[in-house]
Design a protein around this nucleic acid. Structure first.
Lengths: 130, 130
DNA sequence: TAGATACATCGGAAAATATCGAAACATTAA
DNA sequence: TTAATGTTTCGATATTTTCCGATGTATCTA
């Protein structure tokens, strides 16, 4: 038994969700902290946190705590199942995800202090005319 | 754009369900008619029918009508996306699915007339001591 | 034609999931 | 310590999904 039908279904469910799939795909191009993900995707941090919990339960992402930030990333390719590899590749090719990645570049350039909740409105304003 | 985030999520949802994944995996070893699937998996035909509707919507299975029977099968490998190929391979390796396949062999040996709803109880009896 | 059979759809109640603000928790900085 | 900030959990509601019996439809056969 690879891991059982039930477990396989749980893993598939984890990515059968627009936000969770977007988060996974976004992390596919590199580690980010939770607030950066929230900023890029323009959703409440609590939603991002919940999405990440499911992706972690499925074993698709790792996290690394550094001070008050939690950095999340997709597991290394050597640990990915063929199915995960395929899903990630297909998701990263989606138009929506390309846009997210572009936003992520801008967000990363600004650096963490400028981006997270405190400066939310300011950053949105800066990004809006990009 | 491959097909859009929404559409990709719909396709993943189609297999994020124990019965639907089992049906897909079962069909992975060959065409069956709806009543054979119901008999093998021991679930109401209406549930099988609904599961197949979703798998068809996702583009994972084809159907072929012959008289009053509807034969369903997984789409040819040449038409499968890498993701579908991976999911099917992993699902077909599950212990639960191996058991289903064994039952399918018995059901096929008995032939359609003996197996479908009419003879349900009889067949169950025959199969129970295999 | 009437009856039987395979399959699809419907109805609708129960369960699961989504969503997001509010509150709680953890860490940092003043 | 106190205030601020990033993250998680909670609570409560809205929405979706699941499940299967009952009903409907198409096809075969007697």
């Amino acid at each position: 038994m690879t891991h059982g039908l039930r477990s396989m279904v749980e893993r598939l469910k984890a990515v059968s969700h627009p936000l969770r799939l977007r988060v996974l795909a976004l992390l596919g191009s590199g580690e980010l902290c939770v607030c950066q993900v929230a900023e890029v995707l323009q959703v409440p941090t609590s939603s991002v946190s919940e999405a990440l919990r499911e992706l972690r339960r499925a074993g698709f992402v790792n996290e690394r705590k550094e001070g008050r930030w939690v950095y999340v990333s997709v597991i290394p390719e050597t640990e990915m199942s063929p199915v995960l590899k395929g899903i990630l590749a297909e998701a990263m090719a989606l138009a929506e995800v390309h846009q997210d990645r572009d936003r992520a570049v801008d967000v990363k350039v600004l650096g963490i202090p400028a981006v997270c909740c405190k400066a939310e409105k300011t950053v949105k304003a800066e990004l809006s005319h990009v």
